[in-house]
Design a protein around this nucleic acid. Sequence first.
DNA 1: AGGAACGTTGACAGCGCTACCAGCAACGAC
DNA 2: GTCGTTGCTGGTAGCGCTGTCAACGTTCCT
Lengths: 366, 366
Amino acid sequence: MGRKRTKSGKIRLAEVAELAGVSPITASRFFRNPEALSVAKRTRVESAAKELGYVPNLAARALASQRTEVIGVLIPSLTNNVFSDVLRGIYDASEGSRYSIQLSNTRYSILQEERLLRLFLAQKPAGLIVTGIDQTAESRAMLQAADCPIVQIMEIGPDPVDMMIGFSHYDAARAAIAHLFEQGHRKIGFVGARMDPRVQRRLDGYVAAMKDAGSFDQRLVVTTATPTSVTLGGALFTDLLAREPDIDAVFCANDDLALGVLFECRRREIAVPGQIAIVGFNDLEFMASAVPTLTSVRTNRYEMGKTAATMLINAIEGRRPEQPVLDLGFKVIERQSSSGRRSDSRPAVSGAAAANKMIALPSSPD
Amino acid sequence: MGRKRTKSGKIRLAEVAELAGVSPITASRFFRNPEALSVAKRTRVESAAKELGYVPNLAARALASQRTEVIGVLIPSLTNNVFSDVLRGIYDASEGSRYSIQLSNTRYSILQEERLLRLFLAQKPAGLIVTGIDQTAESRAMLQAADCPIVQIMEIGPDPVDMMIGFSHYDAARAAIAHLFEQGHRKIGFVGARMDPRVQRRLDGYVAAMKDAGSFDQRLVVTTATPTSVTLGGALFTDLLAREPDIDAVFCANDDLALGVLFECRRREIAVPGQIAIVGFNDLEFMASAVPTLTSVRTNRYEMGKTAATMLINAIEGRRPEQPVLDLGFKVIERQSSSGRRSDSRPAVSGAAAANKMIALPSSPD
DNA sequence: AGGAACGTTGACAGCGCTACCAGCAACGAC
DNA sequence: GTCGTTGCTGGTAGCGCTGTCAACGTTCCT
C-alpha cells in the first residue's frame, strides 16, 4: 500500500547526507546552523549539497519545525505609488535573507485586514508587517497574541503592538502649512482624496495649524473618498475654487492631486505661485521636474520599507532593536510652487535644477 | 524520544473529523473536493470546521500532496508603474481563489531571473507567471521541463513556453509613429530609458517606421540604460534638442519620459504641439490630465495581469484555454500634444475633458 | 437472482524534514 | 584516576496532511 514511489529525481537531504557520509540530521544542521558542525563535516556536506544540486523542501521544513520563513506584509493598496516605494524597500531588505515576502492587499478595509491577518497567522509566519495603527480590536488582539515579531509601518502612534516605524502625518501637515504661512499665504485650501486614516491625520494637522492662525474655515476643505488621481486633483481644485475663489494656496494630501491642481491652474491661466501656491505630499520624483517645480513634503518611504524589514528580520533572529519605535521624520522640500508671493509666476530658467531648500524635522509621536 | 507535545491549541483536521463523526480523510476531501461527499457528511464537516475555527496547515498539505498552491510571479521591477498595474490585476484575479502569489523581482537581469526560477521550481509551484520572452537558454529549459502551467506576460512572440499574453511593442511603436506622420510630423525623435527588451522592440518599431518613410536618422535616437524618470525625460530631450534642434515631434518610450519632455518644453517655451509634438507610451492616468493633454499608446496592463492569472488558474485546474497566446492589442489615444501642426499651442478650455480619439489595433505576433 | 458499475468511505503509509534527547569523545579540574 | 563539562553527532519519532487502494452499499442491467 502506501503510494507510488514518486521520488521523481528529487534530491533529498538524506541523499546529501549519504554522499557526505554523515547522518541526515547533521546535514540538516549544516543548512540551519553551520557553526555547530566541525569544519571537516561542514565542508563535506557543503560539497555534497553542491554536487547534487540540493534545494531544501520548504514545506517539509515548515511542517517539522512548526514555523515558516515567510514574512507577511499587509498593505492597503498596490496602485498607490507610495506603497510601491515601501515595498521595494521591503523586498530589497529581504533579498539575500532566508525569508520570503508574502504580500496581501487589504484594499483600505480594516475588516479585510482582519480576515487576512487570521489567514496569515494560521500559517505561523516568521514575522509580520502591517500598515498603520488603525486595526480592529480583534486584529489588535490577534497581533498581540501572535508569537512572531510585528512591525507597524507608515506612521507612528502612542501604542505600538510591537515595533513601529514611520512618521507623524499630523506634524508633517502642520509643517507644510507653517511653510505656507511663512511665505505669506493665508487663505490655504486643503484637497484630499481617499481619506484613509493617514490622510485624515494630515487633514487634522492642517486644521490645527489653520485654527492656531485663526484662519480655519470649513469651506476651505475639499475631500472625497474616491481613490486619488491626477485628474481628481483638478476636479477637487475646481470645486474648491468655485466655493472660495480667492484662496492663495492649496495644500494637497498627495502629489498626484498636486500635479492635477497644477495642470488645472495652467488650464485656467492661474499663475503658480503668483496667484496660488501649491504644496504636495510625499515628494514623488516628478515634483522636482514640474514647471514650476512643486513643493512637497518628503517622506522616506523606501527607507521605511527597508528598515522595517531589516528590523523585523533582526527581531526574528533574536536581535531586538534597542528602540522599538522609529520616527523617520519628514522634510518640507521648498520649491518654486510655494515661493513667496509675487506677481510673476515664470520660473527662473534654471528650473528643475534649482537647489531644493529643505526644512527637516523629526516628527514627534503624539 | 519524540518531541514535546506542542499541539498548542491548534485545531487539526483530525479534530474536525472527530467532531463531525467522520474519518480524517473524509474531512480532508471536504476541503479539496466537497462534491465527492454525500450532502449529509458535507454539512457535518462544514459545521464542525466552522465551530472549531479550523484553518488547514498549508505546509502539511504541500508536503503530503507534493505540490503547493503558490503562483510564482517574476517581474523585473517594483518601481515601474507599469508593473504595479499588472500586479494589481494578478492579485485581483488570485483573490478568492485558493492560490497565493509569491512575487520576486529580477531587477531586469535574466541571470537573476534564472536563479529565482530555480528556487521557485524547487518548491513545485502550482503555476508561474514570467515577464517577457527573453529568458536564458537554461531558464527556458527549466520552464519547458516544469510540470506546471506557465504564462509569459507583457509581450507576445513566436515561441511560447506554454501560454502567453501581451501585445506587440513593435507594432505599437509603429502605430504611434504612423499617427505622428498622419498629423504631418516628419522629423521625429526617439527618447528611451532603461532599454529593456520591450523598450528595445519599441525602438525597433520606431526605426522600421522611420526607415519606411525614408526619414530615419540615427541622430534622432537618444537612449540610456538608466532607469526611467520624469527628470530623465527632460534631460534626454535636452540632449536630443542639442543634437537636432529642428525636430518636430518626440516619441517617448514611456509616459514618465513624455511628462519630462513636456515640462522641459514648457521650461524652454517650446509650444506643444505647435513646435513639437509629444507621444508617450502606456497611457498612465496623468496623460489625460496634462496641459496640453498628452497622446499615448494605451496598453491593457491591468487586464493583462488579471487575464494572465485567470488563465493560469484555469490551466492549473485542468481547464486549458482554447487559445494559448492572447494578444491584448493597444490603442493610440490621440490627444492635444500630437494634434496636427499649428502655431498656437494653447489648448481649448475644455482641456482634459476633450474626447479621446482612439486608434485601436490588435497587434499581430511577429 | 447474479453481477457489473458507480458513488462513497476509510485504513494505511508515508511526504522530507527537524525537535528532542542520548551518546560519545576530548578535555580540564580536583 | 575520577568526575564533570563541553562540543559534536546520531537515533527516534513525529509535524498534519493526502495518495492509493480496498471495501462497502446502492443501483441498474442482463
